[in-house]
Design a protein around this nucleic acid. Structure first.
Lengths: 343, 343
DNA sequence: TTGTAAGCGTTATCAT
DNA sequence: ATGATAACGCTTACAA
């Protein structure tokens, strides 16, 4: 009973007094074996504590029950919530999640490719910004894959993201509703599609409200705290100051707040500031940041579900799933300061 | 060349004009094959793009190259930094990291046990608070394992943690140096060893400074924000107020700060507050929290290294590795308020 | 130094 | 409805 080596299908077969083929069938095609036999097998399994050896199974089947999740930075707090969604969905379908951390390093990424080549992973979840393994030719060798946040390989791979444009619209609409007309946009000029979409939402929102776009109010940064602070400095040099700063992400918003405070301004008394992402720190900023929440766990869940569908090739696979982001109203937005309106 | 199915060892052997045994040897025991043969094999490998099929290898070897990491909450931001350390170390030794998320649910944990039974993982990293699989008898069935933060199964499993007592000492010493004598300790009465040790550090620090311990200043909570707030209320009912609140963790400290602010006090003007852990939000609290930093990435690295050692049974394995925590001085501590000293 | 062959635990094909 | 058996790709005695 308390054997040192784990029970194999053969042990089960011996105890149940059937062949190993029958045991295998009893497990995977119960309807193809007689009820009485099934019973015997189940008892034998209970007695032995048998579990299928996944290695042998994968070898035989030619594919594993692992999904490789590759991200540039698994230490990113944004990553972990998505991981929860990915993991839950995978587990409930009998899949395990293998994680890889590329640090945006192609060499690292290549090492993970080996997990795929060596059949250790049946599918792949790719986080934005990676797609590092070689080039187009690579696509052919890739197993069923799903991207997170953005299309990969020019749309060759389906992805799950958030409707950035809608999120940005919600922000602009709030700002407009509060009475703001001079709204700066601190963007991110890096190539992520998400950033472009947030900018598009800004443009569309202004347009819908009949507010003429002022290009001088649009500052391109790189999504870092520092670039937010720098944008404030640049804006203060011009003669046109905004009454609100709409930022491409929370990091940038934090930078903007720091820059504004350094100049002695009050938020939201003198200027309103908004972010995007709702990072964990957003609640703790002073003032607490009004921003857009990414439904992270949900993104993970959907991405994994899509991948699992791909694996069983049940569906032709949608190429894009966009989730609805929510506006989180906290304390960094109020009406435009009379100080500027007066000018 | 651009075959649809991945190359096997047989393809390599055919091209190199040797037997598959020689190929295997050329890969894993290069010194046991002639230089010229090795060359031929390497060329053939390059031509075919061969990668060892990990499934077949693991099946044959009887163990995999995966490490299962089981945590109660993989969404916890503290988890992700440790994960980075774990992952880096594993990868650099050719191991992959499989993650499991138990949500403190024994049922979930059991599902992961299957990964072990089915030979999908060669080793196990356990985060505090899990040890959910059955009881002692289980220990026998466990593969080489390492705990994080705390001993598992009464020390049956080695672990890597932080020297909590030393960390707590650093906090007390700081407080004492600033002139505090009435220092409250807001603890966590749950069974984690770490909490006991932090308390021990508090006691030792007071003792070393010749400050008599006042039991009334010690409040036991449960590590949550709410328990910090509650502790403040309880303390204010007594007649002995502290000048500083030393908290068992950052969450509790946040609760204390909220409670104090609600009563109209200034931090650190009226009271000093300290935490432990240095969670990401600590910088963003107002005031920024003075706390103890857990060397998370390093913990992960050491834990994985220890496990890998265990796997190759090179060492008798130390049962405890305690890392040195650092004091992070920010703005929540200053000298005791004259207001209280005057009393 | 190299080759032959057994066997790791499965699943699936083909008989029965 | 069930059983025998080949094959998945690899590592490692054992022989040569």
């Amino acid at each position: 009973m308390s054997d040192s080596t784990p029970a194999t299908i053969e042990d089960v077969a011996r105890i149940a007094e059937v062949s190993i083929a029958t045991v295998s069938r009893a497990i995977h095609n119960p309807e193809k074996v007689a009820k009485s036999t099934r019973l015997k097998v189940n008892q034998a399994i209970a007695i032995t504590g048998y579990t299928t050896n996944a290695m042998a199974r994968s070898l035989r089947l030619g594919r594993s029950n692992m999904i490789l999740v590759v991200a540039p930075d698994i230490g990113d707090p944004n990553f972990s919530s998505i991981l929860v969604g990915l993991e839950n969905e995978a587990r409930s379908h009998g899949y395990g999640v293998l994680i890889g951390h590329t640090q945006n390093d192609a060499q690292r990424a290549l090492e993970y490719l080996k997990f795929l080549n060596s059949n250790q992973a049946a599918g792949l979840i790719l986080f934005t910004g990676i797609l590092p393994f070689g080039h187009d030719t690579m696509t052919a060798r890739l197993p069923p894959s799903v991207g997170i946040f953005e299309p990969v390989f020019n749309g060759g791979i389906p992805y799950v993201g958030v409707d950035d444009m809608e999120g940005a619209r919600k922000v602009v609409d709030l700002l407009i509703a509060e009475g703001h007309r001079k709204i700066a946009f601190i963007g991110d000029s890096r190539t992520r599609l998400a950033y472009k979409r947030r900018r598009a939402g800004y443009d569309a929102g202004l347009d819908a409200a009949g507010v003429p776009a002022e290009l001088r109010l649009v500052q391109e940064g790189d999504g870092t705290l520092e670039s937010g602070r720098a944008a404030v400095e640049r804006l203060f040099v011009r003669d046109t100051l905004p009454t609100a700063f709409m930022c491409v992400n929370d990091q940038t918003a934090l930078g903007v707040m720091i820059g504004l405070k350094a100049r002695g301004y009050d938020i939201p008394g003198d200027f309103s500031v908004t972010g995007f992402d709702d990072v964990p720190q957003a609640t703790f900023m002073t003032p607490a940041l009004t921003t857009i929440r990414q439904p992270r766990t949900s993104i993970g869940k959907h991405a994994m579900a899509l991948l699992l569908d791909l694996l069983s090739s049940r569906q032709p696979a949608e190429t894009e799933i966009l989730l609805r982001p929510d506006l989180v109203v906290r304390n960094s937005v109020s009406v435009p300061s009379a100080r500027w309106l007066a000018r």
